[in-house]
């Protein structure tokens, strides 16, 4: 039952941030571009230097090796990046076929060359690549930013299923207010480096 707790987090012009995300909870963040949403997620994944502490249950970020933290608290960046020619080379674990179909991709997508994938296909594949590592918490930077309505709904459904099955904590950056209403239990706006609550229990 992993919950994500953020204590006095400061990174560049963002913070101090106090936020607790319960196990199996989805919290959405929106805000103008440049407000620091991506910076916040990067700090939470410990990819950027930051002050303050982040806890996954009782596990402090600074208390465990960084790769272990990032496997557990996984960031999916807005722009997906690939370093090898074939889709499969980017996956450490096999057996993603079921999820591929849930996202509207054929089972043989694993054998595709990266060069022939569209931006939307890459975005869905990059989400799968992260889910394949079974993280306890997910930091999602506009995970449906390049997708059409149908694919967006599929991604939402898959993430919802993952959240409930694994009791994962989700922090989801989105610009789409209707999407926020669909997926989030609570939502915040990041303004002037502070989180302002929009929706849900306080």
């Amino acid at each position: 039952m992993p919950s994500l707790r953020i204590c006095q987090l400061v990174t560049r012009h963002v913070g101090p941030i106090e936020l607790s995300i319960g196990a199996g909870e989805c919290v959405c963040i929106s805000g103008a571009s440049g407000s620091g949403k991506s910076l916040l997620l990067r700090a939470l994944a410990d990819i950027d230097p930051h002050q303050g502490e982040i806890y996954l249950d009782d596990l402090a970020c600074s208390g465990i090796p960084a790769p272990q933290w990032r496997s557990a608290v996984a960031l999916v960046m807005a722009e997906s990046q690939w370093w090898s020619e074939c889709v499969r080379d980017h996956f450490d674990n096999a057996g993603q076929e079921g999820r591929l179909e849930q996202l509207g991709l054929p089972g043989k997508a694993m054998d595709w060359e990266m060069a022939r994938c569209s931006t939307g296909e890459k975005q869905r594949l990059s989400l799968l690549r992260t889910l394949a590592q079974s993280p306890s918490a997910l930091l999602l930077d506009e995970p449906t930013g390049n997708l059409d309505e149908g694919s967006t709904r599929r991604v939402e459904a898959l993430l919802d299923e993952y959240r409930q099955q694994r009791q994962a904590a989700l922090l989801w950056v989105s610009h789409d207010e209707r999407q926020i209403e669909r997926v989030a239990q609570r939502s915040f706006v990041l303004r002037d480096g502070k989180l302002e609550q929009q929706m849900g229990r306080s």
Partner: peptide, 10 residues
């Protein structure tokens, strides 16, 4: 960005 994505994947 590629290197940071790989770091983010653990």
């Amino acid at each position: 960005q590629v290197i940071e994505t790989r770091l983010a994947l653990g």
